[in-house]
């Protein structure tokens, strides 16, 4: 594990965004929108926050990351590749026959993915189980779990929210990518989840509300969560779906669609600056 300066992290976020649009474009499908909104959360986590060893994936003391919203695996694959789990070139095999990079993550195929996901609503329960195992084994690792805001409509999420608070699982840190979009439209139009902070608080969680694209706020939030004892923490990160690509931002249609060649060029210009 190594840590990056704020400037380095900012640059890494650009590379991760570039990977997301490139790999989904190469695949001709995939989920760029909700990947792009989670870039800062994921980049900070893999490069600065989590205690992990990409060269030793089964290291028992490692912090765990559970991608509950499995469809945004492009962002996970990118931060994994860039922190050393596999080569960056391999990202372009996304969704192709024989690739370790399945359309939704497979723990059997890709070492470093803790558990397969893709059916929404299940990750937080798994995070809780890991936390209970850590308690029994007297291990100090932390467990991070990324959820979508639309995903919060799944009843199981709230079962798990109760469980984490009931068992006072303070090693659990939930991340909500609050981009206010799902497939059929805005979250508030499809099935409102607001007020989120009050909901999680009333379920006895410590809540931390941030701008999910402000890296210093992201880093501070992770630190606050780490320092919070006796209850689980949730970072509710206000984000923009499609962040970084002008034509994708806040457009529901870019949830599960990849760029054509022309769009890819615009996206890369948006991310890196024109002519780069």
């Amino acid at each position: 594990m190594y840590t990056q300066s704020l400037e380095e992290l900012k640059k890494s976020c650009k590379d991760v965004r570039g990977d997301i649009v490139r790999m989904t474009a190469a695949a001709g499908s995939g989920h760029p929108g909700g990947s792009l909104s989670a870039v800062e959360l994921m980049t900070a986590l893999y490069f600065n926050v989590m205690n992990h060893r990409p060269q030793e994936v089964a290291w028992p003391e490692r912090d765990r990351f559970i991608l509950s919203k499995g469809h945004v695996c492009p962002v996970l694959y990118s931060v994994m590749a860039r922190s050393g789990y596999f080569s960056v070139e391999e990202l372009l095999t996304l969704r192709t026959l024989g690739s370790k990079l399945q359309g939704h993550p497979s723990s059997k195929l890709l070492p470093g993915v803790e558990v397969s996901s893709g059916s929404l609503g299940q990750g937080l329960s798994i995070a809780n189980g890991l936390a209970l195992s850590a308690r029994l084994n007297k291990k100090g690792f932390r467990i991070y779990c990324l959820l979508g805001d639309g995903e919060l409509q799944e009843g199981q999420v709230w079962e798990a929210v109760m469980t984490a608070a009931h068992y006072k699982l303070d090693q659990v840190c939930a991340l909500v990518d609050y981009n206010n979009l799902q497939i059929d439209g805005t979250v508030e139009a499809v099935m409102g989840v607001a007020p989120l902070v009050e909901k999680w608080q009333s379920f006895n969680w410590h809540t931390i509300q941030i701008d999910g694209h402000d890296l210093s706020q992201v880093l501070a939030a992770y630190e606050e969560a780490k320092q919070t004892k006796g209850k689980p923490s949730v970072i509710i990160a206000t984000t923009v779906k499609g962040k970084g690509c002008s034509f994708m931002e806040n457009v529901a249609g870019w949830h599960g669609k990849s760029c054509n060649e022309k769009e890819l060029q615009i996206a890369l210009d948006d991310i890196y600056g024109k002519g780069n």
Partner: peptide, 11 residues
């Protein structure tokens, strides 16, 4: 799901 997590932790 909790059982799944416990098994990932070696239980």
């Amino acid at each position: 799901g909790t059982a799944a997590g416990l098994s990932l932790g070696g239980k």
